[in-house]
């Protein structure tokens, strides 16, 4: 199997879906000749032309709304929002229109669209270009939310998202774009709503998503040197949420740490924690459920402050030790 960058795997998924289904098109800011602000759509404009790789004015509400309207008419748009923070500018079209159309219309409409963008800090872009808040979207009935952490998953999940008949919020941590992993050639999908055990272990379960899966795996490797055997569950989809995989892991290990990139208050980790506490795994817990997440602050600019705003590998190691103490 070939090693590929996350960004390449994502692009490959987009390209293959566009070749497979002529109703798939990409719309967003600078996605054309420029290839997207992070280069995700690089080369696609040359291959598919301006009708299927559509550069728009700087108009997030119109991008999201045009995607909703086109999806209602049978197309399968993939809307790129340049930074995840800018999703807020497209909110009405996404949450009041796209998410609610089907239910409001009595179950008669389909809105098969993907809206994707890069989230997260670590690039010095400060507060308006760095926030992670995927859980916000999981709060809106009608939306699905996925946040793949590996090149394999990103390709498989973008395909599932494009083929899904509902609006899917597709979350890419920008530090993941240049990470590598094995990606098979050709067509395969990763199901939406299915968590994945990325590392088997018996002492503690770490539930993480997106970039935090990588950090958790790195922490697990270091902890192994001390004889601590960590299981890492990649939640992958926030909605639908695969609590079953989490619960069975916690039943096995008896200890759990949840690691998120979002500000901690009202984050998705609370949903997981409540799910564990209310499940049969509760009786298996040997220690309180622990959460590790971003601080409740806008992301600061200074690199040292920025690093301290969200969990890093040493924080995860320390938190694991705390749970095991």
């Amino acid at each position: 199997m070939a090693e590929k960058l996350y960004i390449e795997a994502l692009r490959e998924g987009l390209r293959e879906e566009m070749l497979r289904d002529e109703n798939v098109f990409i719309i967003g800011e600078d996605v054309g000749l420029y290839g997207g602000a992070f280069g995700v759509t690089k080369g696609l404009f040359q291959e598919f032309g301006e009708n299927r790789i559509i550069d728009t004015p700087i108009s997030e509400a119109a991008i999201a709304g045009a995607a909703v309207g086109a999806a209602l008419c049978g197309m399968r748009p993939v809307a790129e929002i340049m930074f995840f923070d800018f999703f807020t500018i497209a909110m009405d079209q996404l949450v009041n229109q796209g998410a609610k159309n089907r239910y409001m219309f009595g179950g008669k409409a389909k809105v098969p669209m993907v809206i994707r963008g890069p989230m997260g800090c670590g690039t010095g872009a400060a507060a308006q270009h760095s926030q992670s808040f995927p859980a916000v979207f999981a709060h809106f009935p009608g939306l699905k939310v996925v946040m793949p952490s590996t090149p394999y998953d990103v390709k498989g999940l973008i395909k599932s998202a494009i083929r899904d008949n509902n609006p899917v919020v597709f979350v890419e941590h920008k530090l993941l774009y240049w990470t590598k992993g094995e990606v098979p050639e050709g067509d395969y999908t990763v199901p939406i709503g299915k968590a994945d055990v990325k590392r088997d272990g018996k002492d503690i379960t770490i539930v993480a998503g997106s970039i935090m899966v990588r950090r958790a795996l790195e922490a697990a490797q270091k902890l192994e040197e001390d004889g601590i055997d960590v299981e890492v569950v990649d939640i992958r989809s926030l909605k639908p949420l695969d609590l079953r995989t989490v619960v069975s892991s916690v039943k096995k290990t008896g200890r759990v740490l949840i690691v998120e990139d979002d500000p901690i208050s009202y984050g998705w980790g609370a949903e997981i924690a409540a799910g564990i506490a209310g499940s049969e795994a509760f009786d298996y817990l040997d220690a309180p459920i622990k959460r590790l997440a971003g601080l409740d602050i806008p992301i600061p600019y200074n690199p040292n402050l920025e690093k301290h705003a969200v969990p890093q590998v040493p924080n995860i190691i320390e938190a694991v030790r705390e749970v095991l103490r």
Binding site: A67, G69, L72, C73
Partner: peptide, 23 residues
């Protein structure tokens, strides 16, 4: 569809027209 959001249908109509152009 009708719309409970003032101007909410305008981007959607635009998207429907985009679909027609593409198809």
């Amino acid at each position: 569809g009708a719309n409970g959001i003032v101007a909410g249908g305008i981007p959607i109509a635009t998207g429907a027209a985009l679909a027609s152009k593409l198809k």
